[in-house]
Simulated scan of single mutants.
Amino acid sequence: MKFTLSIAFFFLSLAQIFGQESNCFENSTGLYWPVRVGLQKNLTYGNNSYVSTFEGDSLEFEGKYYFKETQKYSTGEVKTRFWREENGAVFSLDQEKGIESLELPSNVEVGSKWISTDKVWTYEILSLTSTYLTPFCEFSDLLEVKTESSEREGTVYTLYYKKGLGMIGLNVNGQPFSYIKPDRKVNERSFIAYGCENFGTSQEIEKCTNAKISQHIRENLKSPQSTVKGRILLNVRIDESGEVSEVTVMETVADGEALEAEAIRVMSSLPKFIPAQVDDNQPIATNLKVPFRF
C-alpha cells in the first residue's frame, strides 16, 4: 500500500509558563464573546497564525447589522466573518447560505445545548471554571463549549472563552490546535532534528528537520495488508527533553485500526530532538501534526 504524508508544526507547552506578568489579559472583563469595534487578537491556528480584527457595522441582513471580523493569516489568506450581539447573545451570519445562527446564548449555564440553524453544528456548555495552558499564559475561569458537526463525524471541538476576549483556545479531539498569543512580540523556536541545528536560517533548519522525519517514516513504516484507504491524522507530543512522549489519533478512517497502529509505532520511534524553546530560551513541549494518506 502506498502512502503520502505532510508535516505541520505548532507550539503548545503543557508544562512551562512564560511572560505571565502583564501579557495574559488579566484585567479583561465583559462578555465571553465580545463583538466590538477595535477588538484585535493574535492567535495560532495549526501550523499558521492569524490576526483577528473587528471592524464597524458593515453588513445589513434582514434589518439586522453585523460587525465584520477580518482574519489575516500568516500564509497571506484573508477570511471574513460577520457577527452581531443582542442582549448578550451572539449570532453569526452565513452569507453563502443566507442564514443566521446562534453562537452563544445570553443565558450561559452548564448543560445548555443548542443547534445551528442549518442543523449541522451542535453545541453544549461544559463548564464556566475551566483552565487553559499556553506557552505564555495559564488562563482560568473560562467558559468551555463542546461543538460537533454532522459533516465531520468523529471530530470534537472544544472552545475556551475568556470574558472580554472571546476564544483564547481550541482543542480538536482533546488535542490543542489554537491559542491566543500575547500582544507583545514573542520568540518561538521549533524543535530541531540533530544534525540540522547549524543549517543557517530557520527555514533551512525546518526543511532539514522535516526531511529527517520523512526519512525516518520511509525507512521504518511497514504498510499493513489492508484495503482501507483514506487520511489518518496523528498528534505527536515532543516533550521538554525533546523525546516523543505521546502519540494519539486525531482523525481516522473506518476500519483503519491496523493503519493507526503502524503509524503510531513508527512515530513513537522517532529519535530524540533538540526541544522547542520559547521567549527566554526555556524548553517547552511541542505538538507535531502528521497526516498520513494511505
Results as ranks from 00 to 15, higher is better:
M1E: 14
M1Y: 11
L5C: 04
I7G: 03
F11N: 11
S13C: 01
S13H: 02
L14Y: 09
Q16N: 14
I17P: 01
F18Y: 10
Q20I: 03
E21R: 04
C24Y: 09
C24G: 06
E26K: 15
E26G: 05
T29C: 07
G30C: 05
P34Y: 04
G38C: 02
L43P: 00
Y45C: 08
G46F: 05
N48Q: 10
S49A: 12
Y50I: 02
F54I: 05
S58D: 14
S58A: 11
E60Y: 04
G63F: 15
K64R: 13
Y65C: 07
Y66D: 00
E69F: 07
E69R: 15
K72L: 12
Y73I: 10
S74T: 15
G76M: 12
E77D: 06
R81A: 04
W83F: 15
L93C: 01
Q95M: 04
Q95R: 09
K97T: 04
G98R: 12
E100L: 11
S101H: 12
E103V: 09
L104N: 02
K113W: 04
T117E: 13
K119E: 13
W121F: 14
E124S: 05
I125P: 00
I125C: 01
S127Q: 02
P135G: 08
E138R: 08
L143M: 01
K146R: 14
K146T: 06
E148H: 03
E148R: 12
S150W: 08
G154K: 10
T155M: 11
K163T: 07
L165D: 06
G169C: 04
G169R: 01
K181V: 01
V186M: 12
R189V: 00
G195Y: 03
F199W: 09
I205T: 07
E206V: 12
E206K: 07
E206F: 13
I213S: 01
I213N: 00
S214F: 06
R218A: 03
E219K: 05
N220W: 04
N220I: 00
L221Q: 08
P224S: 13
T227V: 15
T227A: 15
K229I: 11
L234D: 03
L234Y: 13
R237C: 00
G242D: 07
V244S: 02
S245Q: 13
E246K: 15
E246C: 09
V247W: 08
V249Y: 09
T252C: 05
V253R: 08
D255C: 07
E257Y: 04
A258W: 02
L259N: 09
E260N: 15
A263T: 03
I264N: 10
R265S: 10
V266G: 12
L270G: 02
P271W: 04
Q277N: 14
V278R: 08
V278C: 11
D279T: 04
Q282L: 13
A285F: 03
A285Q: 10
L288K: 07
L288H: 04
L288Y: 10
K289S: 14
V290G: 08
F292A: 07
R293F: 13
